[in-house]
Amino acid sequence: MSRGIFILFPLAAAAFFVSLLLPSLGALMERDTALFTAIFVELRLPRALLALAYGAMLGASGAAIQALFANPLASPDLTGTTSGAALGAVVTAYLFGFTAPLALSAGSVIGALGALSLLLALAGPRAETATLLLSGLAISALAGALTTLALALAPSPFAFYDAYDWLMGSLIDRSLSQAAFACAPALTCILLLMRLAPALDSLTLGEEVAEAIGYDVGRTRLWVVCLTALGVGACVAICGAIGFVGLIAPIFSRRLTRGHPGRAILPAALIGGILLLTADLVVRTAPLGRTLPIGVVTALLGAPFFLWLVGHMRWKLGR
């Protein structure tokens, strides 16, 4: 494994502390310690923790899904997982409200699981790029349409506004207990996904060889799907849908693991965390006079990257 991976740990720690400390609260600390503590503990800490955990979960699950599908274009958002989770959460929110994190998480996980299961059924376990993208697009479109329908049938304008605001993806005004509802499953899922790294690496040689080596490919697939649905679903339930981090992080990560797709899970988690912390810093420091939804920032940065990637792959195939 490349030494570059070890740089990611201090980088992630630095991004986390910068996110906690910027903009500076030095003056406030001297003037009003109680207010400073409240801002630090109740606003900045959950926000930074959520950015790190959500980004890491997206990165790790993106790497695992890409390894599983043997396709660098697979990611939680492009496979419809995030949209499925968002649909599950919106429907649950109408039933229980946005302040019931456990119910929201459950709804979100069920939505993500449904989307990934549908993808496996539609595209198959070793989907070609076109099949994977088209299936993911179809699932995202279906989940998006159903989410819009749910918005249109919102029980009240307040419910509509809450759901719409949440769908944009945001890390703002989440409490520490809400952060715990996302961070605990995310961390657990990342650690469990890392345990699948040797099996996912062996898939490079093909499913038959991986099975002959002694890995249960079916069980590995089931674990990746369930852990991705659980981790991403839990994060989506708290912060809404955030795209492209799960696509970008594994691609950079594999450069540090000499192309090994399974070993890329840990660095992809760190890169994902750094990316989302950085995107959140952009949101907080952008001189626009108002706060941008973080999902919009990652999409604005990620979509051109995705287009470049598709063009690059097409060029490579046509070479």
């Binding site: 043997a70 396709n71 070793r126 490079t204 040689l205 093909g206 038959e208 594999r254 000499r258 192309g259 090994h260 797709p261």
Partner: peptide, 8 residues
């Protein structure tokens, strides 16, 4: 099959 998906 000699098809390898990742460029190791």
């Amino acid at each position: 099959s000699r098809d390898l998906k990742w460029p190791l």
